[in-house]
């Protein structure tokens, strides 16, 4: 029983990790309607930045967020402005996919050129300490990620619902043309949203780096999971993405324990394919089915 509880807890903690990595992707997809294949590389870049700042300035990795998140904001905003925006009117979706796939390939290999294939370890700064909660054990760093992911969901929700800019962002997502007719500068909203989405990844990177090794391919693993989470959560729903992340975390943890750790991905992607094909609106989504034929 205790083992089961531990596996379950691990699943939820993993869910927190997946959630914090996926929220930015969900936001960008939900508003800009672009699937950003370079999302994982944003995370990787953020993790390297955290590594460099934490080791270079000898500060706690969490403190680097003050620099990493703004830098990622700029990276995201630049991506939107100079890569996505020129292609927004393209008749063919292939173009946007290739654009972000190209960015992803370029960033990953740039990291390989600059840092080599070796692992960069950000100091864990005490975040690997175990906390004992009754029968289960969790790492301090995991607990922080879990709590911050919930806080981030709440903060974004508040921002989108209660602020004038947040409302404008939602308006653009729901009806781009009408939003323009209200006097909203749609291109600017897209840049802002892309920036915020990337900044969320920056936050995630600073929390993740002390616990996980940083290498050029770090992003690849997470980005595939993040896609799964976004689809599961119902494409663009931030709360849905959080729940989706929990589900995937649990599947990952349970299948890893009961089926075999090398088949976890089969379980995760199997569930993903089933959802995508059988219930394309996601587990928690509504309508928004522009991506499937009737």
């Amino acid at each position: 029983m205790d083992t089961f509880l531990q596996v379950l807890t691990n699943g939820l903690m993993l869910g927190g990790l997946f959630a914090i990595v996926s929220i930015g992707l969900t936001l960008i997809f939900g508003i800009v309607k672009v699937i950003n294949f370079a999302h994982g590389e944003y995370l990787m870049v953020g993790m390297y930045l955290t590594f460099l700042l934490a080791t270079g300035l000898h500060v706690h990795p969490y403190l680097t967020v003050a620099a990493v998140a703004p830098l990622l904001f700029v990276l995201g905003a630049l991506t939107q402005r100079f890569l996505i925006q020129p292609l927004m009117s393209a008749r063919d979706e292939h173009v946007q996919i290739f654009a972000t796939v190209g960015l992803s390939t370029a960033l990953m290999n740039l990291a390989l050129l600059v840092f080599g294939a070796d692992i960069a370890s950000t100091p864990s700064s005490g975040l690997r300490t175990s906390l004992h909660l009754g029968p289960v054990r969790i790492l301090l760093g995991q607990a922080v990620i879990f709590v911050v992911s919930i806080a981030l969901v709440a903060a974004l929700h508040w921002y989108l619902q209660r602020t004038q800019t947040g409302r404008a962002i939602r308006a653009v997502a729901q009806n781009r043309d009408a939003a323009q007719l209200m006097g909203i500068n749609v291109n600017w909203i897209y840049i802002l949203t892309f920036g915020i989405g990337a900044a969320c990844v920056g936050l995630a990177a600073s929390l993740v780096a002390p616990l996980y090794p940083t290498q050029p391919t770090s992003g690849t693993y997470f980005v595939l999971i993040a896609f799964v989470v976004v689809v599961l959560g119902g494409l663009g729903s931030i709360g849905g993405a959080f729940l989706g992340a929990m589900v995937i975390g649990l599947i990952d943890s349970l299948s890893g324990f009961y089926i075999g750790s090398d088949l976890r991905e089969v379980a995760v992607f199997g569930v993903f394919l089933l959802i995508l094909i059988l219930r394309p609106s996601g587990l928690f989504g509504r309508k928004n089915l522009a991506h499937v034929s009737p």
Partner: peptide, 19 residues
Amino acid sequence: CFRLHGPFFALATIAFLEV
């Protein structure tokens, strides 16, 4: 997968590849 359009078809094929 043919019901899926654009990026979602691409995602599904990536998922199959991983499997």
